[in-house]
Amino acid sequence: MKTLFLSLLISTLLSLSLSKELCNSHDKKVLLQIKKHFGDPYLLASWKSDTDCCKDWYQVECDSATNRITSLTIFAGNLSGQIPAAVGDLPYLQKLVLDHLNLTGTVPDFLSRLKSLTFLDLSFNGLLGSIPSSLALLPNLGALHLDRNKLTGSIPQSFGKFKGSVPDLYLSHNQLTGKIPASLGNMDFSVIDLSRNMIVGDASMLFGVNKTTQNVYLSRNMLEFSLSKVAFPSGLENLDISHNKIFGSIPPQMTQIPLQSLNVSYNRLCGQIPVGGRLQSFDFSTYFHNRCLCGAPLQNCK
């Protein structure tokens, strides 16, 4: 009899333990608002009010200690409309991915309230308007993906004053205009991608011998500055400045850089390609369509 009682007690306690919901009630309410905002799409079919969002919902991750939602990843689906305001009510969110959707509207200013964010990806959408300067207030941001949208205006001055870590910055394939703010020279970006916009003027402030920058992509803009005067980071690995109006010559310092990829084509460069390092390992397409570049792998200088 005693054994049976203990078995029933253990079974009851185990059942109660299993039935206890881990998901924070506030966070769950917010997610259900997001689902409703998008019209209860099939992509979010696992988000049911009678199940546990920390255990049973796809696209959602929770902190094991606090059970607060730390990651929301929704991608590759047909979710039309604007980014729902309810997203700003997830204070413990560290990762927000809303990419390869059909989102429209602007990049909302309320995202700057998510002070725990380390990764923000809104790429491959139809977002319009300017980039909110308030994103620079995110103190823990490690990567910002706003690429492949329809964003206009200039790069915010505030992106030269990120309050915490310096994020990998992806702004390519938009319709950004104006000059690169000089303040960006204060930042030591590991990755910066501004390619395929309509940016003009100088980009030399993005470089510097004391920086740790590894990847710079500036192709297909209207940038115009002298490459001769640029001091490159010693650890630069990938550089694409093709399809601009960049003039001058290729500095000899580039022979000392461990480049894995390089493209300076379709510019206004002149002079002999320095010999050494990796520069001759790239084929002619790396250098062609310049004003008067010469030397291997192009034709010999006269």
Rank of each mutant, 00 (worst) to 15 (best):
D202E: 14
K2T: 05
A203H: 12
R196C: 06
L101E: 00
I273N: 04
V166R: 05
A65K: 11
S7R: 08
I155F: 04
Y217K: 15
K163S: 10
I69L: 15
Y42W: 13
L44V: 10
G248P: 02
F232M: 05
L90M: 06
L293R: 02
S190P: 04
G77R: 00
S25I: 14
P91L: 09
E224T: 13
L22D: 06
L127R: 00
L14Q: 02
S165D: 15
C301T: 11
N24F: 11
K150L: 02
N210A: 05
I74M: 11
H26T: 13
P91F: 02
S133I: 00
F124T: 04
A231P: 02
W47F: 14
T12K: 06
L90R: 01
A76E: 10
D56L: 14
G160S: 03
P156S: 01
F5V: 12
L31G: 05
L98T: 01
F282G: 08
N215Y: 15
L206H: 12
S261M: 12
F225C: 15
P274R: 10
K161T: 04
S19V: 14
L269H: 03
T213L: 13
L262W: 04
G39K: 05
A231F: 13
L127F: 00
P251E: 03
Q94S: 14
H37L: 08
S226A: 15
F75R: 13
D283F: 09
T118G: 15
N174V: 01
S281L: 11
L8G: 05
D147F: 03
K29I: 11
V200R: 11
F232V: 06
L236G: 01
A65F: 06
F162P: 01
Y92W: 13
A45W: 08
S219V: 03
D56A: 14
N210R: 07
W57H: 12
G208N: 08
N244H: 04
Y217I: 15
A65I: 09
F124C: 05
S49G: 12
D283Y: 09
I273A: 05
N125V: 01
I257P: 01
M1S: 03
L206T: 08
L101K: 00
S64Q: 10
K163T: 08
I192C: 12
I192W: 06
E237G: 11
L96E: 02
F247N: 08
L31C: 09
N102M: 07
R220S: 12
Q33L: 15
N244C: 07
D193Y: 13
Q280W: 06
K36G: 09
K161S: 10
